[in-house]
Design a protein around this nucleic acid. Structure first.
Lengths: 205, 205
DNA sequence: GAAGTTACAGACTGATCTAACTGTTTTTGA
DNA sequence: TCAAAAACAGTTAGATCAGTCTGTAACTTC
């Protein structure tokens, strides 16, 4: 008699290939972003990332043939996270934010995290690397464009209003500058004080 | 008999050792700063710098035993340049600047130049390198402290006035953010527009 | 359940870089 | 004038790293 005649259709694998791939890619990207924050671009090597991600170097190179592929994927993932969290579940066509709310939302969702500076570091490092630089720039500009358009709407401006756009750019520049300050300054309270001061000033303008 | 008894005092050398040293160091530091702007930290190697500085690698390593020594010296030189140009020949105890003048002065003397971003890149890259990072930080904090104290006086604040100090920090953060923006943005006019907008807003506050 | 495909593991290689080292030239000091 | 010191030039050793390659395991398709 054959119990195996009616064998289970496929003997369901524990994890599909797609799942395995995705898991490895996730681990590598996450480790890369962490390493970027913790030890900086300079220290990143494929060997280090493989160790950090608890993945063999072979697995890493299989998923990301070149080091740049790995860096681009990590960058893309971070940008995606920013995109997914923006505009905070609001509908810019219907809802608007006060200046205070906008500043807090931008800061909390984008700039407060060490990963913003890590992204800057990556962009700076890749500035002159034609291949990597262009790849990162392409990812960035598409997000920037989207972010800026949404933000202008969020503060009640028109998409084509150059003046409103400039104001948004100033908001972003201020927070960017404070984020950079924070990454070097030892006192974590200074950043919040600067944000509060900026809120006060921006409210009047 | 001795013609050499009254020998010419020294037979003046073309260049003294001190001059030769200084010249080599100058060339190397200058080349390093240029390379930092042009090709970025990532691409900098002692070989490249030696070529760029028109100096043999031997001369370079003689003056700067390690790569870090070279980087630190270049950084120090840049900070010195900022120090020497500040506070623009004014006496902060007697003269004061308007908000507009302060913003222009800070921008023109520190932030406008690509070397500001280059310095940021260096600081970021060295963030986790204990040896290099500490050396750069030490150079930076001494200058920062001095700069901030002078700037507070320049706008008429008291050295111990926390509120005035915070305002200065915000000015610096805004310009820092705009400088970063500029280093990525293709349109060179945006920076000036942002500065003008910031002037308008800062004037009112 | 067998053949084919994809994921993974780890060793190897060539290129590159820093730091050390050896030898040469120039300057200095007596 | 001559010996010592400093500046300079170029080579080499050791380490690291990215990318390649070979072999194995897991999954998929027919």
């Amino acid at each position: 008699m054959s119990a195996e005649a009616k064998s289970p259709p496929v003997a369901k694998p524990r994890r599909t290939q797609a799942e395995r791939s995705q898991e490895t890619r996730n681990k590598v990207c996450e480790a890369t972003l962490q390493a970027l924050v913790e030890v900086g671009y300079e220290q990143i090597s494929t060997t280090l990332i493989a160790q950090k991600a608890q993945v063999s170097r072979g697995a890493l190179t299989h998923q990301f043939p070149t080091r740049n592929d790995m860096l681009v994927a990590a960058f893309e993932r971070q940008v995606s996270e920013w995109q997914n969290g923006y505009p905070f579940g609001l509908d810019p066509e219907k809802e608007q934010l006060s200046v205070d709310e906008l500043i807090d939302a931008l800061w909390d969702n984008i700039f407060a995290n060490g990963r913003y500076v890590a992204a800057i570091e990556l962009m700076l490092a890749a500035r002159q690397d034609n291949e990597l630089g262009h790849a990162l720039r392409d990812i960035l500009v598409s997000w920037i464009r989207k972010r800026d358009r949404i933000t202008v709407r969020l503060v009640g401006g028109d998409v084509d209003d150059a003046e409103a756009d400039l104001k948004v750019q100033l908001h972003l520049s201020v927070l960017r500058g404070i984020a950079m300050h924070q990454s070097f300054d030892s006192d974590p309270l200074t950043a919040q004080k600067l944000i509060d001061l900026w809120k006060r000033i921006a409210r009047q303008a």
